[in-house]
Amino acid sequence: MTDDAISGRKPQAIRSALGLLRAVAEAGPGVTARELSRATGLSTATTYRLLTLLEGDGYLVRLPDLRGFALGAKFRELAELAAPEARLPAADPRPTAKASRPVQGT
């Protein structure tokens, strides 16, 4: 890769996209584009452009009510590849039974 290939705004765009991913992870599901813009210091136009790209690639998802964003499947895949021992178990679709007795110490 030549110096020309990594010069200009492209490295900054990558840093900005990674910053958005981190901000979504820190804020949790439902964080809005405006909140992300404020948190990262990016303009709203840049924030929306990067969110659209990250959503299109599966790193983010837009919540069904369209009120905000959450981490997508590709983000989870990366995390699992980086730390396979930290894989989260799949959620059990069966309803959980209520505890029959109070938990000690509460």
Rank of each mutant, 00 (worst) to 15 (best):
R87W: 11
G19H: 00
A45F: 12
S43W: 14
G72R: 07
R34G: 12
S16C: 06
D92P: 10
Q12T: 04
R94W: 00
I14V: 15
R15L: 04
L50Y: 08
R22P: 03
A25K: 01
A82M: 05
T32R: 05
L60C: 01
A25W: 02
P29A: 15
P29Y: 06
E80L: 01
L20I: 11
R67E: 09
D92R: 13
R38Y: 10
A23L: 02
R15T: 08
G58A: 07
L54E: 01
A97Q: 02
G58C: 08
A23C: 00
V61H: 10
R9H: 10
L63W: 01
A17V: 00
L50T: 06
L20A: 03
Q104C: 04
A45G: 13
G28H: 02
P64K: 06
G105E: 09
F75W: 12
L42P: 12
R62P: 14
M1G: 15
L63F: 02
A39G: 10
G58R: 03
A23K: 03
Q104M: 09
G105R: 11
K74A: 14
L63S: 03
G105A: 11
E85N: 07
L54S: 04
G68M: 08
D3F: 12
G19Q: 00
F69P: 02
R15A: 04
A83T: 08
A39L: 12
T46I: 09
G19T: 04
L88W: 06
A25E: 12
K10V: 08
R67G: 15
D4G: 05
R101G: 04
T40R: 09
V31P: 08
A70H: 04
A33L: 08
R38Q: 11
V24S: 00
L21W: 04
G8K: 01
A97H: 04
D3H: 12
P93S: 05
L78W: 08
R15D: 03
T46L: 15
L54H: 07
R38L: 14
L21S: 05
A27W: 05
L60F: 00
